[in-house]
Design a protein around this nucleic acid. Structure first.
Lengths: 141, 141
DNA sequence: AAGAGATAGTTTCACATTGAACTACCTCCT
DNA sequence: AGGAGGTAGTTCAATGTGAAACTATCTCTT
């Protein structure tokens, strides 16, 4: 096997992520969600305010404003103002929001799991370690 | 280190790709390109017709139509109709298009290379093999 | 040779996205 | 206390996006 350049490695990563998203999209749409909306719902537990979501999802703030509005209108998200800080809103999934998110997550786990499943368990662990090393901020710690 | 679930592994992959794109975007914009436009230019050599680009980039055909128009207006892409098939267009980068694409690619290689560089060479090779296995269609070969 | 079906690319149109500018609120410093 | 500077979230306006429907061309079948 030829040596893989940085560019080729990037291209493969990118293609993998895009391929999974593209494969997931129609099945998630049947659940009444767009991919990005699903990812937002999946992030709400860990990042329960719009500003945090914007940072975590690397999207501009207005995008979050509009997506949250849609998800609220769909009855998937509830917004409560934080008593401690009147600028902030605390977002929580409604029961139906959680159901929708979990169904979509199962779709993604099936699709991505098929690909991950091609690797033996030891290599899966190794992959996870390698990606984590590339993900962590800077060369800190 | 705890066992990494399929979902967590997905999330890390996704974050990695998004983080790189987000880091690259402003520096590519200084070159007069949006990320997607840069990726289109980078794909033109290998996929020299709009329909092929749509498949390779997993974007709908109209998106390609408009992006190609913009890139043509910017003087980065030339369109020539194929003599064999009057429906088709053959796209080629102009010299300035190639320069722009290569500058942008250098930015990406710098940004992604910083992350890849955290791994020793042997692990880079391993990573490349693992991603390739997950990327290839079905369980062929 | 004729037409059924596929493919390349475009247009339309409704909606999504996002940079810039804004309001409101909070925190820190003096 | 007061005001400078920061953060949360929204609004606005311009642009991007993509599903559906379209035209034009090609290919296959008979």
């Amino acid at each position: 096997m030829a040596k893989t350049s940085t560019w080729d490695l990037w291209t493969m990563h990118f293609q993998l992520v895009m391929a999974v998203m593209a494969e997931v999209a129609p099945r998630v749409r049947e659940l009444g969600l767009e991919n990005k909306e699903f990812l937002l719902l999946a992030a709400v537990d860990a990042h329960s305010s719009p500003a945090e979501l914007a940072r975590a999802m690397m999207l501009p703030k207005p995008s979050i404003t509009f997506m949250v509005k849609r998800m609220e209108a769909a009855g998937y998200v509830r917004r409560a103002s934080e008593p401690d800080d009147a600028r902030r809103f605390k977002l929580t999934l409604t029961p139906s929001g959680r159901r929708a998110m979990e169904s979509a997550r199962e779709v993604l786990e099936t699709v991505f799991g098929e690909r991950v499943g091609r690797l033996p368990a030891s290599q899966r662990t190794e992959l996870s370690r390698l990606i984590r090393a590339m993900l962590n901020e800077g060369e800190l710690h």
